[in-house]
C-alpha cells in the first residue's frame, strides 16, 4: 500500500503583531503514521496545531489536512479529525455514558450508532462497572484512555493529541501507547504534541520546533544517530543549545 500524505504544510506561518509564533514550517505526515510534534513550551507547537485543526487561520503559507484546505474548508477539517488535550477532554460532572452520548451527538452520530459505539467502547476499556459513574471520580489514567476513545468515536482520519500522557503512572502510560499503536495500525494517523522527549521515542517520526521553526525532522533513530547521542532528550539539548 502506498502511503499518501494526510497532512501537508508548506511555509505555514502565523504572526501575532510583530511576533512570529510559527515561522514558515514545511512538513508532511503520512497516513497511518505516529507523528511526534515536539518543542519546548512557547516554541509554537500549539499555534501550529491550531492552524491544522481549523481553529486558527494562518497568516501565510499553505496547508492541507485530510485533503482539505485550511483556509477554504476549516469546518470540513473539524469533521474529519479527532482532538484530545490534556487540559480538557471530558466533563467531570457527567457520567461515562453521558460523555460518550454528548460527544457522539456533537459529531453527528445517530442514536443507534452512539448506542452501539458506547457499548463497544465501554467493553473494550473494561469500564462496565463504572459506566454510570461521574467521570470526575475515575482515576486519571482511566479518564485519559476514555478521552482518547471518545475522540475516536466518529472514526476520524487523523487524531490530534495535545500532551496526552503528562503525569500518569508508567504502566497506564504504556497502555495508552498500546492504544495509540492500535489506532495507527488500523489506519488512523496520530499527531502527538508533547514536550516530554522520552515520549518522542515512541513515534515513527518526529519534528522538533525551536522558536517557531522546525529544526529537525526524522525518525527518532536517525536523529539520535545524526546528533550522535543516546536519547531524544539529548537531541533536544543539542538543538536548543545550538
Amino acid at each position: 500500500m502506498k502511503k499518501t500524505n494526510i497532512i501537508q504544510a508548506k511555509n505555514l506561518t502565523k504572526k501575532f503583531g510583530d511576533f512570529t509564533a510559527v515561522n514558515a514550517i514545511t512538513f508532511e505526515v503520512k497516513q497511518g503514521e505516529i507523528f511526534g510534534f515536539l518543542g519546548a513550551n512557547g516554541a509554537g507547537k500549539t499555534t501550529a496545531m491550531k492552524m491544522l485543526i481549523g481553529i486558527s487561520t494562518p497568516t501565510s503559507g499553505e496547508a492541507e489536512v485530510a485533503g482539505l484546505d485550511v483556509y477554504k474548508n476549516p469546518e470540513g477539517i473539524k469533521k474529519s479529525i479527532g482532538y484530545m488535550s490534556q487540559k480538557f477532554a471530558l466533563y467531570d460532572d457527567l457520567t461515562v455514558k453521558e460523555n460518550i452520548t454528548f460527544f457522539g451527538g456533537i459529531y453527528g452520530l445517530s442514536r443507534q450508532q452512539i448506542k452501539e459505539k458506547s457499548t463497544l467502547l465501554i467493553n473494550e476499556l473494561g469500564l462496565q462497572k463504572v459506566a454510570g459513574e461521574l467521570v470526575g471520580s475515575l482515576p486519571l489514567g482511566w479518564k485519559q484512555k476514555l478521552a482518547f476513545s471518545v475522540a475516536l468515536l466518529h472514526d476520524p482520519k487523523i487524531i490530534f493529541l495535545d500532551e496526552p500522557t503528562g503525569g500518569v503512572d508508567p504502566i497506564t502510560r504504556r497502555q495508552f501507547w498500546e492504544m495509540i499503536y492500535k489506532t495507527a495500525y488500523e489506519g488512523t494517523t496520530v499527531f502527538v504534541t508533547t514536550h516530554y522527549m522520552d515520549e518522542a521515542e515512541y513515534c515513527n517520526r518526529v519534528s522538533i520546533m525551536v522558536d517557531g521553526k522546525i529544526e529537525a525532522l526524522d525518525t527518532p533513530k536517525k536523529l539520535k544517530e545524526q546528533f550522535n547521542v543516546a536519547s531524544m532528550n539529548d537531541v533536544f539539548l543539542k538543538l536548543a543549545r545550538g
Binding site: 519546548a40 513550551n41 503528562g166 503525569g167 514536550h195 533536544f236 539539548l237 536548543a240
Partner: peptide, 10 residues
C-alpha cells in the same frame, strides 16, 4: 521540573 523544557530541567 514539571512542564519545563529539557534544557531548563537540566
Amino acid at each position: 521540573t514539571t512542564g519545563v523544557d529539557p534544557v531548563s530541567r537540566k
